[in-house]
């Protein structure tokens, strides 16, 4: 019974934690813009939470570099399972325009497993909301399968 309530509320009111991992701010402000009155995802119960231990969904913008890959992995490990990761923007997907720079490791999936990829430079708020909806469908599948989420790729 309790498990059902938790599972239901995870899908209906997902809590997000946003981490900016070397993004140019373009995707960051678009992610924040999703929360403001024009797009307002809060009316659907989607909350942006600062604390990774409270979160179901991790939103990552920007390229991973050599210093923040540790922070990213730490945040991912702190989140309780089941959890999903959404990578936003061309940089989060592959490194984008910065992929050849010396301090860039590459996309988010080099460090942690990614469930949904949202392309765009920067991704538009509509695309980000769509990505979160896709992610929730995946989260519900994970819940049904009852399998624990795979652990982070060892770096």
């Amino acid at each position: 019974m309790l498990k059902k309530i938790v599972e239901h509320s995870q899908i209906k009111s997902p809590w997000l934690v946003h981490y900016d991992c070397g993004s140019c701010n373009g995707c960051d402000i678009e992610t924040l813009a999703c929360l403001t009155p024009l797009y307002d995802v809060e009316r659907f119960g989607v909350l942006n939470i600062g604390n990774p231990k409270h979160a179901d969904v991790l939103i990552v913008t920007g390229t991973v570099n050599k210093r923040n890959k540790k922070v990213l992995k730490q945040i991912y490990d702190q989140m309780p399972s089941p959890k999903i990761v959404i990578a936003i923007g061309a940089c989060g997907l592959s490194g984008g325009i910065f992929r050849e720079a010396y301090n860039v490791v590459g996309g988010v999936d080099k460090v942690i497993p990614v469930d949904v990829y949202v392309p765009g430079c920067p991704a538009k708020p509509e695309a980000i909301i769509d990505g979160v909806v896709e992610g929730l469908a995946k989260l519900s599948e994970i819940q049904k399968a009852g399998k624990p989420k795979k652990e982070a790729i060892a770096s």
Binding site: G22, S23, N65, R67, N68, I97, F98, E100, Y102, N103
Partner: peptide, 21 residues
């Protein structure tokens, strides 16, 4: 250092028109 990418160095790999992007 959490956002450092090393953009200035990319000028050696992209020509001066591409550097605008």
């Amino acid at each position: 250092g959490y956002v450092h990418r090393g953009l200035e160095k990319l000028a050696e790999k992209r020509d001066f028109h591409q550097m605008i992007q």
